[in-house]
């Protein structure tokens, strides 16, 4: 098991690449979700104000 994490001496390089990939992919997903939620909220608010002038 520790041999697996050592990656034949390239642990720092290999794991930093995978870590970076994970962070960027997750971040991308999270930011786009947050943006969508914000837009839905704005649309909802606009509709409410439009209905009750």
């Amino acid at each position: 098991m520790s041999e697996f994490f050592a990656m034949g001496g390239y642990a720092g390089y290999v794991w930093s690449c995978y870590g970076l990939t994970l962070v960027i992919l997750a971040g991308n997903l999270w930011f786009s979700r947050r943006e969508l939620k914000a837009q839905i909220q704005r649309a909802t608010r606009r509709n409410q104000t439009a209905e009750t002038p």
Binding site: N28, L29, L36, Q39, I40, N47
Partner: peptide, 30 residues
């Protein structure tokens, strides 16, 4: 597939930003 999934969210957000006064938004937002 991941790209397509993220694109779905981003396209939806982009549509909402553009369609300011469309009537169909009410049902979506609800």
């Amino acid at each position: 597939l991941y790209f397509a999934a993220v694109l779905c969210d981003r396209v939806r957000a982009e549509i909402l930003r553009r369609e300011r006064n469309a009537s169909w938004l009410a049902s979506v937002a609800a």
